[in-house]
Computed example of a mutant assay.
Amino acid sequence: MSERRFIPLRIAILTVSDTRTAEDDRSGDTLVARLEDAGHLLAARAILPDDREAIAGKLREWCESPEIDVAISTGGTGLTGRDVSVEAHRDVYEKEIDAFGTIFAVVSMQKIGTSAVQSRATAGVARGTYLFALPGSPSACRDAWDEILAPQFDYRHKPCNFVEIMPRLDEHQRRK
């Protein structure tokens, strides 16, 4: 049996913030650097304010694009009134990846202790596209990428990974 080869994914990065710009988007920059270092492709990048409808609209747009396999947002996952990324993501999901938030909390707990309870990181799938909502700090983006996403976005990772099931994510939408 031959070894699996790496398959680069096309990943879009969305920063959710009322104050960040392209010049000071450290969390977005962190994710872009990590995905490119891993051999993946930056498919799109945007910055939007904390607006539920705008975030959901961008996610839907990216889910419709055949040029995007994964969309990762950073920011807006906290508990304050302006934090609406989780709700926007859930407006779009067809299926939620429940264990992502749990595993992210475990990873975070090792770094920031009980403060991890304040994160509402989430993930799901819509129209064959993976969607992830990460906190807005560069360290949280590093932790999510290094500890969870990098291995799951690597087709060589065993016993299983997100890449190997990608062709079947939208099988319910195909004709029988």
Results as ranks from 00 to 15, higher is better:
residue 3 E to S: 12
residue 4 R to D: 13
residue 5 R to P: 15
residue 5 R to V: 15
residue 7 I to P: 09
residue 8 P to T: 08
residue 12 A to V: 07
residue 12 A to K: 06
residue 15 T to W: 01
residue 16 V to H: 05
residue 17 S to D: 10
residue 30 T to F: 07
residue 30 T to P: 00
residue 31 L to P: 03
residue 32 V to W: 00
residue 34 R to L: 15
residue 35 L to V: 14
residue 35 L to K: 11
residue 36 E to M: 14
residue 36 E to L: 02
residue 43 A to R: 09
residue 44 A to H: 06
residue 44 A to G: 08
residue 46 A to Q: 06
residue 47 I to N: 05
residue 56 A to F: 00
residue 60 R to T: 00
residue 61 E to S: 09
residue 62 W to E: 01
residue 64 E to D: 13
residue 66 P to K: 14
residue 66 P to Q: 13
residue 67 E to Y: 01
residue 67 E to V: 09
residue 70 V to T: 01
residue 71 A to L: 08
residue 73 S to R: 06
residue 80 T to P: 00
residue 82 R to Y: 05
residue 86 V to F: 01
residue 88 A to Y: 02
residue 88 A to I: 04
residue 89 H to C: 08
residue 90 R to H: 11
residue 92 V to K: 07
residue 93 Y to F: 14
residue 97 I to Y: 00
residue 98 D to C: 11
residue 107 V to M: 09
residue 118 Q to V: 11
residue 119 S to V: 01
residue 124 G to E: 09
residue 125 V to H: 05
residue 129 T to Q: 10
residue 134 L to P: 03
residue 134 L to D: 05
residue 139 S to V: 08
residue 140 A to H: 07
residue 141 C to L: 10
residue 146 D to V: 10
residue 146 D to K: 13
residue 147 E to A: 15
residue 149 L to A: 11
residue 154 D to L: 13
residue 156 R to C: 13
residue 166 M to K: 08
residue 168 R to F: 06
residue 169 L to W: 08
residue 170 D to Q: 11
residue 173 Q to Y: 15
residue 175 R to H: 14
residue 175 R to E: 15
